[in-house]
Computed example of a mutant assay.
Amino acid sequence: MTPTSAHLIIAAGGTGGHMFPAQALAEVMIRRGWKVTLSTDARGARYTDGFSHAVAVREVASATFARGGILGKLLAPFRIAGGIVSASLRMWREKPDVVVGFGGYPTIPALAAAWVTRTPCMIHEQNGVLGRVNRLFARRVDLVACGTWPTALPEGLVGVHTGNPVRAAVLERAAAPYMPPGDWPMSLLVIGGSQGARILSDMVPAAIARLPEGLRAHLRIAQQARAEDLQRVIDSYSANGLRAEVETFFRDIPRRLSEAQLVISRAGASSVADITVIGRPAILIPYAQATADHQSANASGLVAAGGAVMISEQSLSPDTLAAAIATILTEPAKADQMAQAALSLGLPDAAQRLAALVEELAQKGAA
């Protein structure tokens, strides 16, 4: 089998957390001469703008049991079954070399078809706890790649730590020199993701207002906030005479990360990966409603290494957050140690590690 004849099917669900690492792997495999097909549903297809035009996008019939009302939940098994049959027939015809699933219900047809047709397959789990679909297939695939380490796996199952692939814009800022805090303008970046970010809109401005005036005077704040929270966050900072950029979305997060003295963030897998690849001190506030509390698991390795402080939502208040911010921004040596600890966990070559596993599976399948 020559590289130009090899065919990879990537299956990913319809969220950025699944699609971004899938996109990174697709880019690497195309550069290595592989044909790549993305298998997703209509929701996931909305995330394909960033994929190379060389990637064939295939929409499959899938469904989730979490949305769609009673009728949608009743029909879900039939839609999934139809997707599996269709994917299996196509896989028998095409005979792909490897299938990789990145989680989410839209991966079920491709992974089930790979199991039926005995096609070499693996899954990549971004979080520190397996998602529902990855948990279902963990014992039915040839390999489990883990983006977060450690990842809680079923007893007797051993994963391979690859890290979570990050965007090219993040790689361009990898290991950017860190300027510790001091008596000069300091950048504080607040990013929260779309789910549950309201608590950061509530807590962060109030916490910063409690900081000593001398520390506040040096802060330049950039905070992402939900559209419905935007104006009140702006007003809160303005009322306290603080300089702040507040937007619903920053398109230049990698640059802002590289310039930050401190990051306050949720603990989504992609956010943690970005923070470690660039190497910045962080205060992580896991989303309490995350399935199986996987955001706490995502944060645990970085906290254990000394690169971040974790505050649970239950413990979060303006006072506890202000104390954590002040401790980091008034101790330059501690902040610098945190930055280096975060960087020590970064895996900028995560996509290449995944690609190597794909090629190993292909060789074993061809043997």
Rank of each mutant, 00 (worst) to 15 (best):
D41F: 07
G14W: 10
C121I: 03
F51D: 03
R280C: 04
D229Y: 06
I278A: 07
L321M: 02
G103F: 00
R353F: 05
L345S: 02
L345H: 02
I70H: 11
W92K: 14
A326T: 12
P180I: 07
A290C: 14
A112Y: 06
I30T: 01
F78S: 06
G268T: 09
E331Y: 04
T40L: 01
H7E: 07
F250T: 05
M203W: 04
A45G: 08
P286K: 14
L230T: 08
L219R: 01
Y47M: 07
L157K: 12
A56D: 13
E245A: 12
L211R: 00
R226V: 08
D229V: 06
P185K: 03
G131Y: 05
A114Q: 05
A356L: 04
A54Q: 15
V272C: 07
G214V: 08
L284E: 11
A56K: 14
A239W: 00
V57P: 07
T276A: 03
R226H: 14
T48D: 03
F249H: 10
G69L: 02
I328L: 09
K35M: 04
R93N: 15
L143G: 00
L230I: 11
D336I: 02
L343F: 04
T162F: 15
G16R: 05
T330D: 05
V233A: 02
Q223M: 15
I311R: 06
E247H: 11
T119W: 12
L329C: 06
A282C: 10
D336E: 12
P180K: 07
R280M: 06
P286A: 14
A110Q: 08
N134L: 01
A339C: 05
R167D: 14
M19I: 11
D142M: 03
W149T: 10
G128S: 04
R251K: 11
R58C: 07
Q295I: 10
P154C: 05
P286Y: 13
